[in-house]
């Protein structure tokens, strides 16, 4: 048990903290390196809106903004203050919907993205792994070959393009799915059966995008893992002992090939999250991606900062959770 803590858990906790530390530090440094002064940009934007403001008020506003952005004091003081606010869970008010706190806006958007992403990631992982293992174990099947070709064809295409093609085909040319959103304008989200149905219909294409792109990677990965594992001693041995094929495929081949895929799932979450953001923009799905787009259009600097920080912490935490689950599947880690 001590060995497990020392050799498995401790390095992972360290890595988790490192990811957050590096990520947050990068988001702290970027605005300070950029040639744009966010305060000046904000001031000039308010001025250009045409309202006449007296110079004193402008100066006052400038100070308030500097304070809010955490730009007062030396860089080190700023950095410490930055962490201080973060640990208190304070990301400041949104500028475009002043004074709504950034955290509340993110809190409203996050469940949509999370629900969609979680479903899509789990589905594509399971489907990709099962089919990938079958593809390798039964290399002669025509159907599996067709799936192989399809997954190879979709895999390299960026999320945006896949989403766009699906949107054009299934909402525009053959209108079986709604064009955009998570529910029609005017309905209020609730847990009634009819709303759930509407929600599912609206989420089908966005989810399909994530599944289609994600699936190929798991499929190809599992295929190559499986083809390595079927020549492992314990599989050849199991075949020689006359254990039934089904049992060998599930308990010997897939069970072992799955392990690197679990690690891979953790490593891919960042990329999938990025994909989900852009997919939401295409389908105007009211999650983190749409919030990002609004923030960009409305020049809401603090909201973008908040989204970046939340994303980093969120993804790092999910990866860490995956690390915590992993020993359940691998006794070699569990009993060192």
């Amino acid at each position: 048990m001590r060995k497990f803590l020392l050799h498995y858990l401790l390095p992972r906790i360290a890595q988790y903290l490192t990811v957050i530390f590096i990520g947050i530090t990068v988001t702290f440094i970027i605005p300070r390196l950029s040639p744009t002064d966010p305060v000046e940009a904000q001031v000039s934007m308010i001025l250009s809106s045409g309202s006449a403001v007296d110079p004193e008020a402008i100066e006052h506003m400038r100070q308030a903004l500097t304070e809010m952005y955490g730009l007062s004091g030396s860089p080190l003081e700023q950095y410490i203050a930055f962490w201080g606010r973060l640990l208190r869970g304070d990301l400041g008010p949104s500028l475009s919907t002043f004074p709504t706190p950034v955290t509340r806006l993110i809190g409203q958007a996050l469940p949509w993205t999370l629900g969609l992403m979680l479903t899509a990631v789990i589905l594509s992982w399971i489907i990709g792994n099962v089919l990938g293992a079958l593809a390798s174990y039964y290399p002669k099947s025509k159907l599996i070959y067709a799936i192989d070709l399809m997954s190879q064809a979709v895999r390299p295409i960026p999320y945006y393009v896949v989403a766009l093609v699906l949107l054009v085909v299934f909402a525009y040319l053959i209108p079986i799915f709604p064009f955009s959103g998570a529910y029609p304008v005017g309905t209020r989200p609730s847990l009634t059966p009819s709303f759930v149905l509407i929600y599912l219909k609206h989420s089908a294409l966005p989810a399909l995008t994530l599944i289609l792109v994600g699936f190929g990677g798991w499929f190809i990965g599992m295929k190559s893992l499986t083809s390595n594992i079927i020549s492992e001693d314990y599989v050849v041995y199991a075949e020689t002992t006359g254990i039934k094929e089904r049992k060998i495929l599930t308990q010997y081949v897939m069970r072992n090939a799955m392990l690197p895929q679990i690690t891979g799932l953790g490593l891919s979450l960042g990329t999938v999250f990025s994909g989900a953001l852009i997919m939401e923009v295409v389908f105007q799905y009211p999650g983190m991606g749409m919030l990002t787009l609004q923030a960009i259009f409305r020049n809401d600097y603090s909201l973008i900062m908040g989204i970046a920080i939340y994303s980093i912490i969120g993804v790092a935490t999910s990866v860490f959770l995956m690390d915590l689950i992993y020993p359940l599947f691998d006794p070699r880690v569990r009993y060192q």
Partner: peptide, 17 residues
């Protein structure tokens, strides 16, 4: 850390600035 980090939000922040 860079492998697991969601790069898009960071790039969006950069692109925005």
């Amino acid at each position: 850390s860079f492998v697991v980090m969601p790069l898009l939000p960071i790039l969006i922040l950069l692109g925005f600035l």
